[in-house]
């Protein structure tokens, strides 16, 4: 419909908009500049600061640990919930389906604030116990695990489970040997999704985190308000490192799926989850 040059220009413009800030910041993270625009000398000092400042390391490791713990809990809860709801009666599954949708469509500010009110103000749980923070993140992530497992359950052939029962497997064995392996792809992508949601969250963390603990998001937001140049430029380095990790993960997973696809044939092209 459009001429080829127009298409190329649109694509180039959008790509520039998306990547220019990240890439320019990456270039400046390798200099001793304190501001973008002034070209100075090449320097690794931002990376040295990033990996030697205790405060920064604590914050990064804390964020990762929180993401792993809440993703693990969400995956267990969400998967069990999905399997249970899928094989339950209509009333139970409608209840879970509907309630599950609430944190998905709700604004994170509202989710975080309401959990804070319930746990901290009404029940009096101390934020320093990390309990409100973990519960907040699980509430954010578990519904998405649930949503990524349900489609896999719908694709299952119920006869395989019945065959296992007929051949003498107990329901529990049939579940772990037949159902779980077949929905594992959904579980894994739910887990990955939970990790990214937890890593990216700002609002739930602000309302539920202990005062001395910071996730990357809350730390960066506070750091941009203060004017500590050394920390500010070290965050440029952090942004670059995270960008490279994301690129690497995308390349690896693409290579893996294209390899799998080749062996399974072209008809699965659109089923990769895209």
């Amino acid at each position: 419909m459009m001429k080829k040059t127009i298409k190329t220009i649109i694509i180039a413009l959008v790509l520039t908009f998306i990547y220019a800030p990240i890439l320019i910041l990456a270039v400046y993270s390798l200099t001793n500049a304190t501001q973008i625009g002034a070209i100075r000398a090449f320097s690794f000092h931002n990376y040295v600061t990033l990996f030697t400042t205790e405060e920064l390391i604590h914050m990064i490791l804390g964020t990762i640990l929180l993401a792993l713990v809440s993703a693990l809990l969400s995956t267990i809860l969400g998967t069990l919930g999905a399997v249970g709801a899928f094989y339950s009666g209509r009333r139970t599954s409608t209840f879970i389906n509907t309630t599950n949708q609430i944190p998905v469509v709700n604004a994170d500010v509202v989710t975080g604030f309401s959990i804070c009110i319930l746990l901290v103000i009404v029940l009096g749980i101390n934020k320093e116990t990390y309990l409100p923070l973990v519960i907040g993140h699980v509430t954010l992530c578990a519904p998405f695990v649930y949503l990524s497992v349900i489609p896999k359950l719908k694709q299952l052939d119920p006869r395989i489970y019945e065959a296992a029962l007929d051949l003498g497997a107990t329901p529990f064995v049939a579940l772990t040997k037949i159902v779980i392996p077949q929905i594992s792809q959904g579980i894994v992508s739910g887990f990955a999704l939970a990790i990214t949601l937890s890593l990216d969250d700002y609002f739930i963390a602000t309302y539920t985190k202990p005062s001395t603990f910071d996730t990357i998001s809350t730390y960066v937001v506070n750091a941009t308000k203060g004017a500590q140049t050394k920390i500010k430029t070290a965050l440029w380095a952090l942004s670059t490192v995270i960008f490279l990790i994301v690129v690497l993960i995308v390349i690896i997973s693409n290579y893996r799926t294209s390899y799998k696809n080749r062996s399974k044939g072209e008809e699965r092209y659109y089923e990769k989850g895209i």
């Binding site: 910041l25 990357i216 998001s217 960066v220 942004s239």
Partner: peptide, 14 residues
């Protein structure tokens, strides 16, 4: 998949 606060920091500098 890059933390939004870091992306906004990059944008802010530009």
């Amino acid at each position: 998949w890059i933390n939004f606060s870091l992306r906004i920091t990059a944008l802010k500098e530009i």
